[in-house]
């Protein structure tokens, strides 16, 4: 019996591994989307001194099932005048990129679906498709709110992609690799080896993280940058015309994107599956540490959402072009200088 299991999981059967990871990532995304919605509502409630959803099932824990049941029971309507094909494709397009991104995230030392050499690049390139999908959803809906929302999504994402990539490049100069697992591997040992605390590489590392985090909020269209879904102005933004599970998929994708973004932040800045104190590491505790860090960041995302009101649109763009981009350019230069200065000094003297 054990031989069979060994055989199934061993390197001899890569396609079993493939199927396991497919199922695993599917389940991970589904469970996250379902329960992060609940967590969000609970956290929102606690911050506002109320209990949040507490009726469905054990103190509200069955709420996601009730929600999903409701969404499935609803009819998926295609309003007249829409671009049918694009309208139906958009939910798929918005869901696919985070699923692809999750394949390269190292959850543990050996727990990565595919250890791609250019994993980080993969995450960013497929992350950028998300915009396209939202925009097509807005356009295909043939609804003025949806189109306004799409236009906002694009200008917002274009503006925030730049500081995001600059910051990541800063980090890449320090790590020298695009392989996410190797980046984590470099941050072993005590927690001061995490990129977040590595001020000897670049004294502005914490600032770099803050910029990354702000850009992540903007890229995933989260409050205070949720222009795409400004419900008080634009009904539901790009998803206005969607109902039932079509809407549900957009919702799931939003949370899947948050999970991807926070995973990347964990990997890049907080040492992924590394234990903060040399002890308690290994194949069991590694994924556990990863999850702790991941959900701490997810909590922060929600915490930010329920703290700050939505920004105005020009403020949003000003923040990116006038503050984030100059600072991230400066950190980029600083990192370069600090890396090459010893070399220069060595040559001179």
């Amino acid at each position: 019996m054990s031989a069979i299991v060994q055989n199934l999981l061993g390197p001899g059967w890569p396609w079993v591994r493939l199927l396991l990871y497919l199922a695993g990532i599917g389940a991970f995304v589904g469970a996250n989307a379902a329960y992060l919605v609940l967590a969000e509502r609970k956290i929102a409630g606690r911050i506002q001194r109320r209990p949040g959803p507490n009726e469905a099932g054990f103190g509200g824990w069955m709420q996601p099932f009730a929600d999903v049941g409701k969404l499935f029971a609803k009819q998926m309507m295609i309003p007249p005048g829409t671009d049918r094909l694009l309208y139906c494709l958009a939910p798929l397009m918005v869901m696919a990129p985070p699923l692809i991104c999750l394949t390269v995230i190292p959850y543990g030392e050996n727990l990565v679906a595919r250890n791609v050499d250019v994993g980080l690049l993969l995450v960013f390139s497929f992350g950028s498709i998300n915009v396209m999908a939202l925009m097509l959803a807005g356009w295909a809906s043939r609804n003025k709110f949806a189109i306004i929302s799409s236009a906002r999504v694009v200008s917002q994402n274009v503006a925030y992609e730049i500081p995001m990539l600059l910051v990541v490049i800063t980090l890449l100069m320090a790590t020298g690799t695009l392989n996410l697992n190797e980046i984590v591997g470099q941050q072993g040992g005590w927690f001061w080896n995490w990129n977040f605390f590595r001020v000897w590489v670049n004294p502005l590392m914490p600032v770099t993280f803050v910029i990354f985090f702000i850009c992540m909020l903007a890229e995933t269209n989260r409050a205070p940058f949720d222009m795409a879904e400004a419900e008080s102005e634009l009904v539901a933004g790009a998803f206005t015309e969607y109902g039932g599970m079509g809407f549900g998929v957009f919702f799931m994708a939003e949370y899947a994107n948050i999970v991807v973004g926070c995973s990347i932040a964990t990997v890049l800045f907080f040492g992924g599956w590394q234990s903060p104190f040399v002890v308690l590491s290994g194949p069991v505790f590694g994924p556990l540490w990863f999850m702790v860090k991941l959900y701490a960041l997810v909590f922060t995302v929600m915490w930010v959402r329920w703290t700050f009101p939505r920004t105005q649109f020009y403020n949003l763009l000003n923040l990116s072009w006038k503050i984030l981009i100059p600072i991230s350019l400066f950190t980029l230069l600083l990192t370069g200088a600090m890396m090459k200065l010893p070399l220069l000094l060595h040559h001179l003297f």
Binding site: G127, S128, I129, V154, S155, V158, E161
Partner: peptide, 9 residues
Amino acid sequence: GAVCVTIVF
């Protein structure tokens, strides 16, 4: 991520 998005915009 960049060219098509800009064109659609």
